[in-house]
């Protein structure tokens, strides 16, 4: 659940802060990039490090592909969530069973079109800096909301969000850094298209 929030915020910041003209990221456009995630867990000598790439297709969904140390692909679409590893489906959650996904889409859609109310309902938002280098700090308004299990989120960015740090209530933290982000207007690769279709299946 945690990282779903991250992506909401990532996209929200990319959409509303980094782009000069609102609505630049329009239906059919694709945001591509790579990510490195470090999970610092108390009691563990080294953080869990995951690297991979992501593809966000406006209006269709998100493909989150971890490559190392373990290849696993997660696809989120309005109809639900699907996860596969080594060609075998390991998880499927229809949106009807996951009210959070529906909330996520409401927040996401709002943020992308510059409507911050959905986000500000759930978080206290603090913004600093300018369009070229900005910081964003989000603190949940309600503590104990099981759907938002973290203490705070810090985001740094320029044109896109570059770094996201999530602090959990128990002090564990996830640090995500993004690289090679581009907005593409090319049609989606057939393979990715297929993944989105699979996630949409019931």
């Amino acid at each position: 659940m945690l990282r779903i929030c991250v992506v909401v915020l990532l996209l929200a910041s990319s959409g509303a802060w980094a782009t000069e003209r609102r609505g630049e990221f329009a239906d059919g456009q694709i945001l591509l990039g790579r990510f490195v995630q470090l999970r610092q867990l108390t009691g563990f000598p080294a953080p869990l490090k995951t690297e991979g790439r992501f593809t966000l297709v406006a209006g269709r969904g998100l493909i989150w592909q971890a490559e190392t140390p373990f290849a696993v692909t997660t696809v989120i679409s309005p109809s639900g969530l699907m996860q596969e590893a080594g060609g075998v489906e390991t998880m499927r959650l229809p949106a009807a069973r996951l009210p959070f996904i529906a909330r996520l889409y409401a927040m996401l859609g709002g943020a992308l079109s510059g409507d911050w109310r959905g986000l500000e309902d759930a978080f206290t938002v603090t913004r600093e800096g300018d369009e070229k280098a900005w910081n964003l700090r989000l603190v949940p308004r309600r503590s104990g909301d099981a759907a938002i299990p973290f203490r705070e989120i810090l985001i740094q960015g320029g044109r896109f969000a570059d770094r996201v740090e999530i602090v959990k209530p128990d002090g564990d933290r996830d640090i995500l850094t993004f690289a090679d982000q581009t907005i593409s207007t090319q049609p989606l690769a057939a393979q990715d298209m297929q993944l989105l279709d699979m996630a949409g299946r019931r």
């Binding site: 659940m1 945690l2 867990l41 009691g43 373990f70 590893a85 080594g86 390991t90």
Partner: peptide
């Protein structure tokens, strides 16, 4: 084993430090 790994490294992280150990 693969299912567990995909949960830890996949998008939906259910892993809890104490539990994983």
């Amino acid at each position: 084993a693969v299912n567990a790994l995909s949960q830890v490294f996949g998008f939906v992280g259910m892993a809890d430090a104490a539990l994983l150990r």
